[in-house]
């Protein structure tokens, strides 16, 4: 029988020869296993020794165990380091190979643009208001100061179901309904939704489209407040370098009335082919709410005033994403929709 020192030498030599983790594990079992391991076998005969030798053997065996364990750990670390040293080669993959398609669907670009607009205006304290798409004459026209026979009706040629029911030509009826419902200003609302006008489909307009209108009714609002609101909205959506101008125009439901333009994103207002050398792109209409319209909404125009604006969501999306044909939004060709 060998003594602990010899056993240690033998084990260390075996460990030094080991090439793999499996060999190391086999050596560990062979020498250090509690039952029938070589070291424990050595100790199993300790009882036969005279008492004064037992302590020495015990101590020698413990030293042997520690030495073998240390050598095993060192070997294992050596093997692990060797393994990690060449994974750069052994486990290399072709990182240029593309990932598999996720198969994710897409939100409609108009949903995305509408949400961006809502987010900006909600951050300013405006609330989304919705209303019916099939409206009455009164809400669609009369309440907005457009009585029958009014020449401006031509701009809102509409689809009728009965002489009194029609598809709304703008989301302005929602403004009237909101004023009637909320009753007491301040009122800060936006009204996104689909609208309909009797125009034959072409690249720049469709008989159906979507608008976002905004309405503020409060004390002592000014044209300046309206301009600031539009500027904040446009710059938030298109970037700080954009400018906004308002041009006098005419709508029966606002006085004064304006069109609002945004500097062309391509030439920054200098004039280019894209903006037909105007430097400005027409976005929508706006103005100070006509006192009669406030009255029709149940608001006292001697106490309150307001401003309102409106524009097409498609127009905003076309400006933002360089879409040239409005029909693409409603054609549902996935090759278009998946670009956004």
């Amino acid at each position: 029988m060998s003594n602990p020192q010899e056993l240690t030498q033998e084990a260390l030599a075996a460990i030094a020869r080991a090439q793999t983790e499996a060999e190391v594990a086999a050596i560990e079992v062979d020498y250090l296993r509690r039952k029938n391991g070589r070291l424990s076998s050595l100790l199993s005969e300790i009882g036969k020794l005279p008492p004064e030798e037992r302590a020495a053997l015990g101590q020698a065996a413990n030293e042997a165990k520690r030495a073998i364990e240390a050598a095993l750990a060192a070997k294992r670390q050596e093997l692990e380091e060797a393994r990690l040293a060449d994974i750069a080669e052994t486990e290399a993959i072709d990182i240029t190979f593309p990932g598999p398609p996720l198969g994710r669907g897409h939100l409609h670009v108009l949903t995305q643009v509408q949400r961006q607009i809502e987010t900006v205006l909600e951050s300013m304290g405006y609330q989304v208001e919705l209303g019916p798409e099939v409206e009455t004459e009164w809400y669609n026209f009369e309440a907005l100061n457009i009585p029958p026979g009014h020449p401006a009706r031509e701009n809102w040629d509409s689809f009728y179901f009965t002489p009194d029911l029609l598809l709304r030509a703008h989301t302005s009826p929602v403004q009237i309904r909101a004023m009637q419902r909320i009753k007491e200003p301040p009122i800060y609302i936006i009204t996104p939704g689909r609208c309909y006008r009797r125009d034959a489909p072409e690249a720049t307009r469709l008989p159906y489209f979507s608008q976002v209108e905004g309405l503020a009714v409060d004390k002592a609002l000014t044209v300046g407040d309206m301009k600031g609101t539009l500027l904040y909205m446009i710059q938030s959506l298109y970037g700080e370098e954009r400018k906004v101008r308002v041009r006098p125009s005419y709508f029966p439901f606002t006085e004064p009335s304006f069109e609002f333009d945004v500097t062309c994103g391509i030439c920054a207002g200098a004039g280019c082919k894209s903006c037909r050398h105007k430097g400005w792109l027409e976005v929508g209409g706006c103005g100070m709410v006509h006192p009669q319209v406030l009255r029709n909404g149940g608001i006292d125009p001697t106490k309150w005033n307001g401003y309102a604006w409106g524009f097409g969501i498609e127009r905003m999306a076309m400006l933002k994403h360089d879409v040239e044909d409005i029909r693409l939004f409603y054609e549902s060709d996935l090759r278009f929709l998946e670009q956004f």
């Binding site: 939100l107 469709l206 159906y208 409603y330 998946e338």
Partner: peptide, 14 residues
């Protein structure tokens, strides 16, 4: 729906 591979469309109401 996007995660499940569905793409949103806006179709004419008329």
């Amino acid at each position: 729906l996007a995660g499940a591979g569905f793409t949103e469309t806006w179709n004419p109401a008329l």
